[in-house]
Design a protein around this nucleic acid. Structure first.
Lengths: 219, 219
DNA sequence: ATTTTATTTTAGACTAATCTAAATATTATT
DNA sequence: AATAATATTTAGATTAGTCTAAAATAAAAT
């Protein structure tokens, strides 16, 4: 159907607009996300536009068509299901699974993914808290808040993380912050936007804005 | 490390010489196995020879080097472990798994395969009865006999099948011949080399030489 | 409203893997 | 041993995906 490279471009466009699917993605944004040169992106955008997977106007950036979005969701579904499998069944750490899932997501078999989904009991969120689209591309609405938006004394549990680099995830491990860990805001430091929080009612630490903005919270 | 295509050529050479690793594989044999033209095979053989994965003399065919063989065994290991996973855990039929495993075998992660191996409790044979190499490339010796070599009244159980095309496997399903099914030879028909056998002490049927030679038997 | 800077696109080239058609080797047959 | 048939290799082309360098466009700054 589509090559792994085409799939990766579609996925990248989707992920860059996951929060705001109306906006256009710039060529340079994509080249950064894909680790390629802008010229290569332009080449690929022409091909994807020919296949009616994206809306593309020269110099104006790119958006997914309905068909492109449903393709992208299918790939994201595969990626997140495999991540869930790797952590739940094969006992990988949550910071180790991304690279492997990048490869597994391109294996082409509807039956494989549907059977994997059943085998895992149709999980709704992957190990990083990201929603897993169902066969039809539907996402469970999360209603998560960003940690930075909580007021002093507000509490919540870790529901998801945005950044998924191993370096970031290992940092959270060191702080004993995991999925479902209870957090409470002690203080916002205006000077550097950092926050003091209590973790699991035991430790109290200061975390940078950079870290806080990558943590999503639920009740 | 190696491209999926390079891996496929190594695997093909290995499988063609699994019974007799001393013999050379001809270009045309490989082109048939890989569904490509002989000219493409020649191109690839030059590349594999440059990488010291095969011994190659123009017009004289090809053999794996020690390094090529250990690469090939690693790929065969992945293929057969994934087949086992697909049948045992995801409940695929044994005739459905080959194509999917062809893709999964190229996913590059030592950790993935080792963890999968443990998760499956280090199986020694795949769903078709073929031995699964261990991490070091070692195979469990099977000592299976070909069904065609059994004498009248000799008994045994199905231990493996050679041909793995869905059409063949479905034919066996129809005859209720599966892994471990007890068989007994009733008669050899000299005229067409077919055999009459009893299956599971219930049915008695005649099977062609073509079918019989693809079934391996153990006690 | 120009000019400068940044972004994006085009032009042309490269590699891996494939193909067809033609040339060359090997093997089999008379 | 010469010839015919088969197998293999070479030559040259093609496609996907990438690159660098240069040209074109858009956005920002004066």
């Amino acid at each position: 159907m589509f090559s792994p490279t085409e799939e990766n471009y579609l996925k990248a466009i989707y992920l860059l607009t996951e929060k705001d699917s109306a906006r256009a993605v710039a060529t340079n944004e994509l080249s950064a996300q894909m680790n390629t040169r802008a010229a290569s992106v332009t080449d690929m955008l022409k091909r994807l536009a020919d296949k009616r997977l994206i809306h593309y106007k020269k110099y104006k950036g790119v958006m997914l068509t309905t068909s492109g979005k449903s393709q992208a969701l299918a790939i994201v579904r595969k990626h997140r299901l495999w991540e869930y499998f790797l952590v739940e069944k094969l006992k990988f750490q949550w910071d180790e699974v991304h690279a492997v899932a990048e490869e597994l997501e391109h294996v082409k078999s509807e039956a494989l993914i549907d059977k994997l989904d059943s085998y895992l009991n149709n999980p709704k969120f992957d190990p990083h808290g990201d929603p897993i689209p169902d066969r039809l591309g539907k996402l469970s609405a999360s209603g998560f808040k960003n940690l930075t938006s909580l007021k002093v004394n507000e509490k919540g549990k870790v529901a998801a993380v945005i950044e998924q680099q191993p370096a970031f995830l290992k940092h959270l491990d060191k702080l004993h912050i995991h999925m479902s860990t209870p957090l409470k805001v002690i203080e916002h430091i205006a000077f550097d936007k950092s926050m003091t929080i209590s973790i699991n009612q035991t430790a109290t630490v200061n975390i940078s804005h950079e870290v806080a903005k990558n943590i999503l919270i639920t009740k």
